[in-house]
Write a protein that binds this DNA or RNA. Structure first.
Lengths: 111, 111
DNA sequence: TGCCGTACTACGTGTGCCGTAGTACGTTGG
DNA sequence: CCAACGTACTACGGCACACGTAGTACGGCA
């Protein structure tokens, strides 16, 4: 099970990456995360909705309403151009972070 | 440059891993992190001292004073048995986190 | 009709990393 | 001799973010 502190700071990256392939809505995103992490990370609704709104307020996501299958209106989110830029930036930062933590975690010696 | 949010939750792992090889003190640890991250992550003094005290209060670290080279007393920290256990647990959690974020960040498909 | 799944909102909390600031002491150089 | 610098540490406050808990609302289905 992956804890909140471990994932903190990487949620934006995960959301942006999921939305890179196609627009989606909160509930589906939540399912996607649960499924693809094989149940190892269960994002909370509050966390998810808060993050989506934050990303939208920062101009990284756009949203639109769409009444679909269930007959209930859903808020779909999609990447903006800026969001795509941020996604690439976050991917790069993630690679640095991963390298750094791996470096220490595995006890390798200096470069 | 690695931001605070990206590293958050992984600092304990880094500190414990550094102290696994041998006891050390705050200033040296700070130098170690700066050096080994090639300047990509500069841990703040407050962050470091706070983290060390937290880990000590949780019984993962012991400390002892030692007057050395500079003539000033230093607080050395060393791993406890519990700290070693926690280190292993955090390594495992890190591997899970890394796998999860990599999975989404690289846009691979479901297992 | 009452429960389940979907879809979303509101409000408060705690942790942890950071910003800023200050103390204190020993060595070194001009 | 004293001023600057590096070392070693403390204090206090701020804030973002993930979370806990709770509640609303509506459609389908048995």
């Amino acid at each position: 099970m992956i804890g909140a502190d471990a994932i903190r700071g990487h949620i934006d990256l995960i959301l942006l990456a999921i939305l890179e392939t196609r627009p989606s809505y909160a509930y589906e995103i939540s399912r996607t995360i649960t499924d693809r992490s094989r149940g190892e990370y269960l994002i909370k609704q509050t966390t998810l909705y808060t993050a989506l709104k934050r990303l939208q307020s920062q101009g990284q996501l756009d949203s639109y309403e769409d009444v679909s299958a269930t007959g209930k209106p859903r808020t779909y989110y999609e990447l903006t151009a800026d969001g795509l830029d941020q996604l690439e930036a976050k991917r790069a930062e993630w690679r640095s972070t991963r390298e750094l933590v791996d470096h220490f975690a595995t006890g390798k010696d200096a470069p």
